[in-house]
Design a protein around this nucleic acid. Structure first.
Lengths: 347, 347
DNA sequence: TGGTGGGGTTGGAACGATCAAGACGATCCC
DNA sequence: GGGATCGTCTTGATCGTTCCAACCCCACCA
């Protein structure tokens, strides 16, 4: 082939070998090499080893772009990456991304990150989808009234959501979520087991589905023991300051001995109140957070927190993705996973 | 074209339009459409608008795979994603990744994440490089004796490092780093300005280049004031427990009034010691951390911490990448950026 | 002997874009 | 007036892979 001399040139960086190079070396056709890579069992044993030797000698790796073009797939999963919010203890994304990268790798995929557009929530998806840059998406920000999910669904774009379609129970896309109510129920029962009876709740505003879900777990556990919850609940913004204020008010007006919070951020607000009043977390007042962030892990004496099984979430998401991409017709039901409780000094 | 009937089929999901479709619609050749997209100024004004109309009507977007194949570039930047370590306050990656995603987007690139192999640190790079899946890498884990960097350099693979080539000052690749010494010097001077004189250092083991660099900033600031540092320094593992122990010993043996730490993780250990001894951070003893993690931001009364300008780092990295990918010959010198100090209640 | 069947292999034609070179007409300049 | 130049657009080839249909060869059986 006329490629060889160009490759021999010392100035040009060597072009990687192609299928044709391997085929020539092994004395077979291109297609046979392709089969050796993708369907080895189609070849006779001796041909296969000969081709594999040629591949090894040349250090051949299939060119992705060419393969993508021909197969109409990129082996890439798109994920809109939202950073941690400064000043909060919100830490889900980082752990989740890692789990997803790890799991997709085992399935032969890679993760493509893209940034969100402040104005148009769909912009990033639009671009990647129409240029066929990714095979599918993982949508994580479903709590924003998920225009992305409906938009993607309309376009029949393959995607799996991390988060239930709260507002659209009729949605027909696969999703994986963590049972927040089960988490707070776990936390509340843990506190009940430690003898607490007046357990307060600090959660998010009523328009947050996730917040209401988590709240319901606390409510369920309390009612199961026939304990009153009146005056023990508070709904605020997800900031440390709000948690501080809410806990301060609750301590004054309802004298709780324990707090269950919708997030580690709010729990840190509680710890701050305790700190100000000279109360010891875990000894005088118990506190449980949600998300098992780094903050919960390293704060003095530690913060007990509900931990989402993000590794498991990633596994189910990838499983669903593989299903979507092989047999697009089948859409299984959503998957709901149970969180665990990371016990630390605050309870 | 024979494609049209297939596209009209109701069962098949519509194939996206191609260059040829647009060309036919606009009554021009394929190449002209290509030029309209990539070199609009080559076209006559009226032709351009006609083609653009056709593009808009059909909703055409160039197919990435085809473009990648032809141009031998993927517009993807590979980044090995290492997750936060559980139990630490190490938070650089998340913020950095976000900055990088944002900045690369503006430059027309996307970020491709891949997982590290525990055994072979080069495996992920190898795979992506030889399959021409990415145009370049951003290497962040240069502190590990960076076999990746040397490996990539040998292969003439384009990459930019976040982190200096400490062990290989002769390295000829572009890098961007944050001046850790300047950061700790800033922190120490801040404490000196507040009247502290006995300022202790808690850092990492001697084999950490980054650790020694940060230590040198503290040393420099102290020596500039002719203050003794004997007995005031400690080198330990980067864990909360180590920080706790080290600060406890230092308090007993050297009576410091302030601590400068190589990380927020160590600083949290100091806070824990203070908490145990009934001392108030910021009032009785001052503490400064490094990285401005979420932990520093939400811990009660806050932790003063050195903040790396990661957005700026990303900008310089992308700039270097663009340089590499357009004119591979030129390799500018490394870029060293100055961190800032985030002031909070602990000082 | 000759048809049948099937595993193993082959060559040509896509996939959808860009590159390189050339065609065409209009303009310019000597 | 003729050749060179420029701006604009077209044509054919090419990137490296996989799909498709046909092919070869040999075993099997009538």
């Amino acid at each position: 082939m006329s490629r060889t001399p160009g490759r021999a040139s010392a100035l040009q960086p060597a072009l990687p070998p192609t299928l044709a190079d391997v085929a020539e070396r092994a004395g077979v056709s291109r297609q046979t090499v392709s089969n050796a890579v993708n369907n080895p069992d189609l070849l006779r044993a001796d041909t296969l080893t000969r081709v594999q030797e040629a591949i090894a000698e040349l250090g051949y790796t299939p060119n992705r772009a060419a393969r993508n073009l021909r197969t109409r797939s990129s082996q890439l999963i798109g994920l809109r990456f939202t950073p941690v919010q400064e000043g909060t203890a919100n830490a889900t994304m980082d752990r989740f991304v890692h789990s997803l990268v790890e799991t997709t790798r085992e399935a032969g995929y890679h993760v493509l990150l893209f940034a969100g557009d402040a104005v148009d929530p769909v912009a990033g998806y639009q671009d990647l989808l129409s240029s066929t840059a990714v095979d599918a998406f993982v949508v994580t920000d479903t709590y924003l009234g998920n225009p992305q999910a409906t938009w993607l669904e309309e376009r029949r774009a393959p995607f799996v959501a991390f988060g239930r379609p709260w507002e659209h129970p009729e949605a027909r896309h696969p999703w994986v979520d963590v049972d927040g109510a089960a988490g707070t129920e776990l936390a509340t029962n843990h506190l009940l087991g430690r003898g607490h009876r007046r357990i307060a709740w600090i959660g998010w505003r009523k328009d947050s589905w996730i917040g209401e879900d988590r709240r319901s777990g606390w409510l369920r556990a309390m009612h199961a023991r026939h304990l009153s919850t009146t005056g023990l609940a508070s709904r605020v913004e997800d900031t440390v300051a709000s948690g501080r204020e809410a806990s301060s008010v609750l301590l004054d007006e309802a004298q709780p001995t324990a707090f269950v919070c919708a997030s580690d951020t709010l729990a840190m607000g509680v710890l701050q109140t305790l700190d100000e009043r000279g109360l010891r977390a875990g000894r005088d007042v118990a506190v449980v957070g949600f998300d098992d962030s780094q903050v919960a892990q390293v704060v003095p004496r530690g913060l007990t927190s509900v931990r989402q099984p993000l590794e498991e979430v990633a596994v189910h998401i990838v499983k669903a993705l593989e299903g979507l991409l092989t047999t697009p017709a089948v859409v299984g039901p959503g998957v709901l996973l149970a969180p665990t409780l990371a016990l630390r000094g605050s309870t």
